[in-house]
């Protein structure tokens, strides 16, 4: 039997890299941004809001690595501080939206009947509008400000989680372990929260991760349009907005734009990695 030539099998390390290489790169980028946001004051010697008109629109140099903007503020400092707002807003919107949407969808799916029907029509109603337009309208009605924009985004954010969690709970609720729990005598709250939802979190985690980038992007978009943060708060979207007419001074808009790009891509890589990890049918090499 030993004379049978077996083909070379890729080493576990190579296989792991092939599968999760991009995802771990994404995670590293996110981790770097989170650390930068937390330790911002130690990373730069400038105040993000310190106006020095004499230093306005300087190109990148040894003193200002990424140049200065129209009010002479250091772009590098503002990009680093901007991570605080963007990451916080992204996480708050997605986590609160996911929690609320998931619970609502799960309860509706488990209750069936008019509760389920009503919830689905409500999500349809939200889905009728382009999300960014609806968020703009709500944010404009509430007034400019970070908190108001977050509230506006939450209104358009929860329905997708409600839909996903509903479909996940529907596929779980007919499993025999649910019937077993019923026949033991467990009540609906225990069955839904302790038995069904733990089996449905996988796809929800994937959606949350993929969605974090999206939320950061939408918030940046709203800020770009002048709705998100109130100046002079450093925020990537509004920084891009401030730099949009400065064609000669490319650094003002480019670097916050790159920041958005890296964060969104990193979250997407991470989400894809989670999906592969949680999907038993994924092609395992």
């Amino acid at each position: 039997m030993s004379d049978i030539a077996l083909p070379a099998i890729a080493s576990p390390r190579v296989r792991w890299l092939r599968r999760y290489g991009l995802a771990s790169f994404g995670a590293a980028v996110i981790l770097a941004w989170v650390l930068a946001a937390i330790f911002a004051p130690w990373l730069t010697r400038y105040d993000p809001n310190f106006v020095d008109v004499a230093m306005r629109l300087r190109p990148p140099s040894a003193g200002n690595w990424l140049g200065t903007d129209a009010l002479g503020r250091d772009v590098a400092t503002r990009v680093i501080y901007g991570a605080r707002v963007s990451l916080t807003v992204g996480m708050v919107v997605v986590l609160v939206g996911a929690l609320f949407g998931t619970l609502l969808g799960a309860v509706a799916a488990y209750a069936r009947g008019w509760a389920e029907e009503g919830l689905m029509r409500l999500t349809d109603l939200v889905f009728c509008f382009p999300p960014i337009i609806l968020a703009m309208a709500i944010a404009a009605a509430l007034g400019i400000g970070t908190v108001n924009t977050v509230i506006a985004m939450l209104v358009v954010w929860w329905p997708k989680f409600a839909r996903l969690s509903r479909s996940l709970v529907i596929s779980q609720r007919s499993m025999e372990y649910v019937e077993a729990a019923q026949s033991i005598g467990f009540g609906p709250a225990h069955i839904l929260l302790r038995q069904i939802i733990p089996n449905a979190v996988g796809p929800l985690i994937v959606l949350v991760t993929l969605d974090l980038g999206n939320a950061i992007l939408v918030f940046a978009g709203l800020s770009f349009l002048g709705l998100g943060t109130v100046p002079p708060t450093p925020e990537w979207g509004s920084m891009v907005g401030e730099g949009r007419e400065l064609v000669q001074q490319w650094w003002v808009a480019t670097f916050p734009g790159l920041a958005i790009l890296t964060v969104v891509m990193a979250f997407n890589f991470m989400g894809d990695g989670f999906r592969d990890w949680l999907d038993p049918h994924a092609n395992r090499r």
Binding site: M175, E176, Y177, E179, A180, A181, S183, I184, G185, G187, Q195, P198, N199
Partner: peptide, 25 residues
């Protein structure tokens, strides 16, 4: 279901599919 709960101590069920009847988590 609440009136029947005490009686469930006396009446139990075994299911067909051993892969679906135990909560995997």
């Amino acid at each position: 279901q609440s009136t029947i709960r005490p009686l469930r101590r006396r009446m139990q069920m075994i299911f067909q599919d051993p892969y679906a009847s135990l909560n995997p988590r």
